[in-house]
């Protein structure tokens, strides 16, 4: 690697350099702010995760290096929570994207009261998750719940199942509660993507005699990809950090404990600050890695779009 190629002076005019300096000066305040609100807490958590803090004697702590991470990665609990969280994310995000796309297509049609409906579908998203979780809990209660009663009345299977007390079923309720709540959010992002597709493209397709299905598969979906990927990234990051739904619905029983719940238990209930921080950092890293992978492999489109816009 030659020094020449690294040197910015070559082939760059004085004006360019001045502009570059100006750019740095102009971005500096936001960079400093970012550092304060993001880097400081993360750095602090990282420091906490490298120490052990006594739960027996106040103020006593010791530096243990990576021991907290080794303990976490060697524990069955972490890997169980890891697998369960990914299962939840995979199920909920794929359902939300499929349903969200369908919902967006419907909302994009021209009909009377469209503006009102667009607002109304957002209602579930506006409800506090804990509140909606308690509602779902009540609905799935054995004997008394709405869902179990309706299923029994219709003679359908599931009426006599203790949904939140059974492996698989408990996960299904949590996925359902999440899909109900956040599908409108996915739909809204995808709707925005739909609206930038020009009508001319569709007119051209119609002239060429493309069927509705062909139009959807060959025009709508490819052009929607950036919006769908964006929705997928947002939803996946959220789903991997899920806490409130399993906390309220099952307390982590029956294969529903998430990574965040595990960290919470260690940090808050057990006051194991070091171990809990290590689990938080591991959760954070997991989410980071997944987002980077997304952007690398599925987000090619986003970069292309960004380039075109420049």
């Amino acid at each position: 690697m030659s020094i020449k190629s690294l040197s910015p002076g070559r082939g760059v005019s004085a004006r360019d350099r001045a502009e570059r300096r100006l750019a740095i000066r102009m971005t500096a305040p936001s960079l400093i702010l970012m550092a304060l609100v993001a880097a400081v807490p993360i750095g602090y958590a990282l420091w906490l995760s490298l120490n052990q803090y006594s739960v027996r004697t106040a103020g006593l702590s010791r530096f243990v290096g990576l021991e907290n991470y080794i303990t976490a990665l060697a524990s069955q609990e972490w890997w169980a929570a890891f697998g369960q969280t990914f299962l939840f994310a995979a199920l909920s995000v794929s359902l939300e994207l499929v349903l969200g796309t369908a919902m967006a297509l419907l909302l994009n049609l021209a009909f009377k009261g469209r503006a009102l409906l667009r607002t109304v579908v957002l209602l579930p998203y506006a409800i506090v998750t804990v509140v909606s979780a308690i509602t779902w809990q009540t609905m799935f209660q054995p004997n008394l719940g709405l869902v179990t009663n309706v299923l029994s009345a219709l003679g359908l299977p599931g009426g006599d199942v203790v949904w939140l007390g059974e492996h698989g079923y408990a996960m299904a309720v949590i996925v359902l509660a999440d899909v109900w709540k956040t599908t409108p959010f996915a739909a809204l992002i995808i709707l925005a993507g739909l609206q930038v597709i020009s009508a001319e493209t569709y007119e051209a397709a119609e002239l060429d005699g493309a069927s509705k299905w062909q139009t959807f598969v060959h025009i709508t979906l490819p052009l929607l990809r950036p919006a769908i990927v964006l929705a997928a990234i947002f939803r996946t990051m959220d789903a991997l950090r899920v806490f409130d739904l399993p906390f309220v619905l099952t307390r982590g029983a029956n294969g529903t404990e998430s990574m965040s719940m595990l960290a919470y238990t260690q940090l808050r209930e057990n006051r194991l600050v070091g171990e809990g921080s290590a689990l938080s950092i591991l959760t954070f890293l997991t989410v980071m890695v997944v987002s980077v992978v997304y952007i690398r492999f599925a987000g090619g489109n986003i970069r292309e779009v960004a380039k075109e816009e420049q």
Binding site: W47, N51, Y53, T57, A58, G59, S61, R62, F63
Partner: peptide, 24 residues
Amino acid sequence: ALSAAAAVMAGSMLTACGGGAATQ
């Protein structure tokens, strides 16, 4: 000695962040 040193470090750090380690 090590844990005492660590305790002092942790104590000052926590105080700096407004937490404040409890004293016996």
